[in-house]
Structure formats: C-alpha cells, structure tokens
Amino acid sequence: MGLDFVGQGAGQTDGNIITTTIDKVVNWGRKNSLWPMPFGTACCAIEMMATLASKFDLSRFGSEAIRFSPRQSDLLIVSGRISIKMMPVLKRIYDQMPDPKWVISMGACASCGGVFDTYTLIQGVDQFIPVDVYIPGCPPRPEDLIDAVLQVQQKITSGASPKGVEVIYE
C-alpha cells in the first residue's frame, strides 16, 4: 500500500503514527476509487457490463462508480469499434475528463481496428488519444478487464504519470 508503520517501541506513540508522503496517500486514494467513464460501442461493452455486474463485480476493486459524465470520471474505457465519425466524439469526451486520467483500450477493435480493416474504422484509438492499458481479445473476458483495471492501479501506485500527461509534457 506504500504506507510505512513506524513508532514500534518508540515509547508513547505506541504504533499509532504512520509516516508517508502526500503523493503516496493521494495515489492510494486514486487507485482505490477509479471512476470509469464507459465508452461502449460494440460487443466489448457487453463484457464490460458483465464485469460491472454481480458475477464479476468490479466494485471489489473500487471501480464500480460508473459515471456517464466525463467530467466526473478519471478512467476512460473504450470498448468497441470507433468509426471516423465517432472519433471526434471520443476525443471530446477524453478532453472533458479532468486530470489525472487513464485510458483502457478494450478489445481488438479499439486497439487496432480488429477484423474491420475498412475505410471508416479507426485502426487503433491510440492514434488520437493516449492509451495506458490495452486489452487483447475479441471480446476480452471480464477477467481481462479486471486485470486491466488492476494494471492501471499498479501504474498509479508506482507513481507513473498517465500516458496523457506524458504526451502533454513531452
């Protein structure tokens, strides 16, 4: 968790003092309450719904507070095909999310266009928005999405900036 207990045997404190850094505490809070913004455009969204529902229960990892307003969320889950007409909408939603924000590109279509190698389909949303974690699969199983959320959590714990921030300050 990144919190260090000190004070054992230090007299009157008796193990009740915790030393840490602000960053660590803030990141600990962030990682355990990621609020996802679902951008479900295809069958991956069905798996995402399953992940959020009782059987797979994403709330075990603190990410059950789905927000349909980008202004209230910090994790964008792109699950499905994105066409050239939809991409500006997705970009707008990404831009509306407050920093720091993370992006999961769920499934083959969002990550690389999948089997839809056609004139209208974006061949990977990472061409236009920064993606932190990719999930392979067509569609990926809910366990894969949970794994991706845990990877985002790991990323936050490690103190690494989201991909979006790196892009801004590069």
């Binding site: 050239i84 007409k85 991409m87 500006p88 909408v89 970009k91 707008r92 190698d117 056609t118 004139y119 209208t120 389909l121 974006i122 061949q123 061409q127």
Partner: peptide
C-alpha cells in the same frame, strides 16, 4: 470502385470540421 480500405480517410480526417 471504392477501395475497401478507403482513400486514407481513417488516418486523416478533420476533428474541427465536424459538429460534435
């Protein structure tokens, strides 16, 4: 006669032109 993979629309399209 329209190519399946298009004429490059999916790589270059205008973000600003469209009403989002």
């Amino acid at each position: 006669d329209y190519p399946l993979r298009g004429r490059g629309e999916r790589e270059r399209f205008n973000f600003d032109k469209q009403n989002v």
